[in-house]
Amino acid sequence: MKTSKDCVNQNYLDFVAEISPKTNEKRSLLRAFWVGGFICSIGQGLRYFFQEVVGLTGDELASYVSIVLIFLGSLLTGLGVYDRIGKYAGGGSIVPITGFANSVVSPAMEFKTEGYIYGTAAKMFTVAGPIIVFGVSASVLVGLIYFVIYRIF
């Protein structure tokens, strides 16, 4: 039986690649840069606010900034605005922590029609699941390696 590999017609694929429209490079990079920079600046503003006005420091300060940004990202997703920002900014809105929030909320909203448990709750991590899996695994691995290093040296 034929596999997908047997089907490859390289001449055709090369021609398709040649004539396919390309993303406007400069424009997409510029948009990613300014939107990404802007979202990070909001984070910095929040940081100053929590530091100066509320008087938080250290890890707590960093966590509150993340929490507020995640709140904003989730809210904008709920209002149906974040995907528009995403279409405009690409990487500029995917990579900031607000983009993580967007990737959690969007499938959860979408699958609500299949119920609040197997729809919303179960499908919540279809996009963001790998981030939690790899993030937590990496941190445990790093912790274990450093634990061994600290004990030996």
Partner: peptide, 17 residues
């Protein structure tokens, strides 16, 4: 969109092709 690609509200870019 939901079946073949991503959730509607996911902020992903749509390539020109």
């Amino acid at each position: 969109e939901r079946q073949y690609r991503y959730p509607l509200e996911l902020g992903s870019t749509r390539p020109p092709q």
